[in-house]
């Protein structure tokens, strides 16, 4: 078996990983460490390199440069060992629609080589975790979008992986359905499973992740707990100012002239770290809408891009 069963070995270790597609560099010197037992949200918009990174972790895309280790196994050389110890939730729903819930899970219990005597129990546990305990005989085609996604997640858990990769697990789902799925991910966290979850939903990353890695242009640009990142980049409070007669550009220039970071939020200008605004400046501004700083403020500040 592989060299690493110790919990001291990082679940994921990426050093200087580069992936090019022709002239496009999708992943550009990516460094990432994920200790065991951590839920890490990989946050970034489309094109940041998240999905390419996920594909490299399953060796379905080979890095041009750099080192990748999963639970101590070198990728791609020892990828099969790594895949035996991790579960992968793909971005694309590739469930077999003409089969039942139970048949879909049974199929993957073979692929993951779950020992024969544990197969039934593993399938039952997965169905309970997905809240599909009474739907074993239901065709996947007859499931709702949320049920399908829950099934897709627990399908990757049949062999009790130590690491779970989730590539945009809730993309395209209604907000309510997304929140239902969070329960499954929280259950994994409670069990001490390491999770790497790529997402471009800020709220999802903030609520579910122990740590967030912000990814842009193929590399991690900042990393930390959501609270630390918010405190570091956005302070405690954000104030949103509606521009007066001078217009939004003048308002922004005025505030930035005092050394504050702003970002446009629709027709308003949001000021980060607003608790530090001097009274002299505040007197010149209209009454703001005040709210607590959040991860989206950090994200936009660091990348100049808004996400969902």
């Amino acid at each position: 078996m592989g060299p690493s069963d110790s919990s001291a070995v990082p679940a994921l270790l990426l050093r200087g990983v580069v992936k090019r597609f022709g002239s496009l560099t999708a992943v550009d010197g990516l460094d990432l460490d994920v200790p065991q037992g951590v839920v890490l949200g990989l946050l970034g918009p489309n094109g940041a390199g998240k999905s390419t990174t996920m594909k490299m972790l399953t060796a379905q895309s080979l890095a041009d440069e750099g080192e990748i280790r999963i639970l101590g196994h070198e990728i791609p050389a020892e990828s099969k060992w790594a895949r035996a110890r991790m579960g992968v939730v793909p971005q694309h729903d590739n469930l077999d629609e003409e089969l039942t819930v139970e048949q879909n899970l049974r199929m993957f219990s073979f692929l993951y080589r779950v020992p024969r005597r544990q197969r039934r129990e593993a399938i039952g546990r997965a169905m309970r975790l997905a809240q599909l305990g009474d739907r074993g005989d239901t065709l996947v085609d007859d499931l709702s979008g949320g049920m399908r996604r829950r099934l897709l997640i627990v399908r990757a858990l049949l062999h009790r992986p130590e690491l779970v990769l989730m590539d945009e697990p809730t993309v395209g789902l209604d907000p309510q359905v997304r929140q239902d799925l969070w329960g499954v991910i929280n259950a994994l966290r409670a069990e001490g499973v390491t999770v790497l979850m790529s997402t471009h939903y800020i709220e999802e990353a903030e609520r579910l992740s122990d740590e967030v890695a912000l990814m842009a242009a193929g590399r991690v640009v900042e990393r930390g707990t959501p609270a630390d990142l918010v405190a570091k980049y956005a302070g405690a409070t954000v104030e949103e100012y509606t521009p007066g007669e001078d217009g939004i550009d003048a308002l922004e220039a005025l505030i930035r002239g005092h050394g504050f970071t702003t970002r446009r939020t629709g027709t308003t200008v949001s000021v980060l770290r607003a608790e530090e605004l001097p009274e002299s400046l505040r007197d010149r501004l209209a009454t703001p809408l005040r709210r607590a700083s959040n991860l989206e403020d950090v994200f936009v500040t660091l990348t100049g891009e808004s996400v969902e």
């Binding site: 597609f21 999708a26 918009p45 094109g47 940041a48 895309s61 242009a217 100049g304 891009e305």
Partner: peptide, 27 residues
């Protein structure tokens, strides 16, 4: 995928990256 073109690049992949690059470099 071991090089060449990605299996299914998002249509706006290159454009998105161009928009992102300056911000990322800054950060």
């Amino acid at each position: 995928s071991s090089g060449g073109l990605p299996p299914a690049p998002p249509p706006s992949h290159a454009a998105t990256r161009r928009r992102w690059a300056p911000s990322a470099a800054r950060s």
